[in-house]
């Protein structure tokens, strides 16, 4: 039995007398013990989805089962077995690290001791500061404390809504490492993030935009959705390069990626020499043109454009 079964859920909100669709007809399953990533920008519907799954709000229509329990009728059973970390840092800022952990342990009818082995590796990193008020912790430490609190009752499914937003690259790396460790304990993990580069670390990735899934697949499968030829291009004058590439015959899209531009073409017939010749004619120096494999972000933008049209 999958840990999460979602069938055709939709949800809209009313804002300024207009109906805004937050989620439109979404369906997916998450296998037991899987690490499932929901990736998309702010306002795509990630938080709404997570709140429906954690029984916090009701969908307008559709069906959701968590560990076989219905989110509407059997919400009490679900609340006993899930761990949830909301997007905003949601612990008591005026309570110390230890007080927070103890409080959440008691709320879930357990003690810190009982499940210490599960959180040990995470909690040990903040234990030296256990008498510090949670509000006085750094971003990375708050995140570790929040995760410890969400895990203290050894949930069978863990929901993490944007745990790495606003966190620096070092803490993000550490955080994903922790998630991988937790997965080994048999916990099913659903995590949402706006950072495309985190997709590679999930078993399954759902790309979400405007309340709809653009794709659900393994990271490799997702990447293979990009069918067009893709080139990384670089020159000494990047600003001019972009202007010139936009005029290039056969250009499908051109986006900056780090120090390169990713140029996708709408024809397979265009060769490296053709691009090179065109750019040389535009007087570019230090040209570098390489064929590359698409990444998640390339796919996301491609799918985003195709649904917009």
């Amino acid at each position: 039995m999958p840990s999460v079964v979602v069938e055709n859920i939709s949800k809209s909100f009313t804002a300024e007398k207009k109906k805004v669709l937050a989620l439109g007809d979404i369906s997916f399953d998450v296998a037991k013990g899987a690490l499932f990533g929901v990736i998309g920008p702010d306002g795509a519907g990630k938080t709404t989805l997570f709140r429906i799954l954690t029984t916090l709000i009701l969908a307008d229509k559709g069906k959701v089962e968590i560990d076989g329990f219905d989110v509407v009728k059997e919400y009490k059973d679900i609340r006993k077995r899930i761990g949830y970390m909301p997007g905003k840092f949601s612990l008591y800022q005026d309570l110390t690290v230890e007080e927070n952990l103890e409080f959440f342990a008691t709320i879930f009818n357990t003690t810190i001791k009982e499940n210490y082995s599960l959180i040990k590796e995470i909690y040990q990193q903040i234990e030296p500061f256990k008498d510090r008020r949670a509000g006085k912790l750094s971003g990375g430490m708050k995140q570790k404390l929040a995760l410890s609190c969400a895990l203290i009752h050894r949930p069978s499914i863990l929901f993490l809504d944007e745990p790495t937003t606003g966190v620096d690259a070092v803490s993000r790396k550490e955080f994903w490492h922790m998630l991988k460790q937790l997965q080994k304990e048999g916990i099913t993990i659903l995590v949402s993030t706006p950072y495309m580069d985190e997709a590679a670390l999930c078993d399954t990735v759902a790309l979400i935009q405007n309340g709809k899934f653009l794709s659900i697949d393994t990271p490799e499968g997702t990447v293979s959705l990009f069918k067009k030829p893709l080139w990384a291009v670089k020159s000494d004058n990047m600003y001019k390069l972009q202007q010139d590439l936009k005029q290039f015959e056969g250009m499908a899209s051109i986006y900056p990626f780090g120090e390169y531009y990713h140029l996708s073409l709408n024809r397979d017939s265009i060769l490296q020499e053709d691009i090179s010749a065109y750019l040389t004619s535009k007087v570019h120096q230090g040209l570098e043109i390489n064929p590359i494999k698409a990444g998640i972000e390339d796919v996301f933008m491609e799918l985003m454009k195709s649904t917009d049209d």
């Binding site: 998309g40 920008p41 702010d42 795509a44 937003t165 606003g166 706006p194 495309m196 935009q209 990047m238 600003y239 972009q242 986006y255 900056p256 972000e297 996301f300 933008m301 985003m304 454009k305």
Partner: peptide
Amino acid sequence: DEPTGGVDPITRREFWEMIYEAAH
């Protein structure tokens, strides 16, 4: 100060285009 946090990848790039234009 972190102008593109949480923004979708296309808009993020359009944003940087604007930055480039201003710098230019």
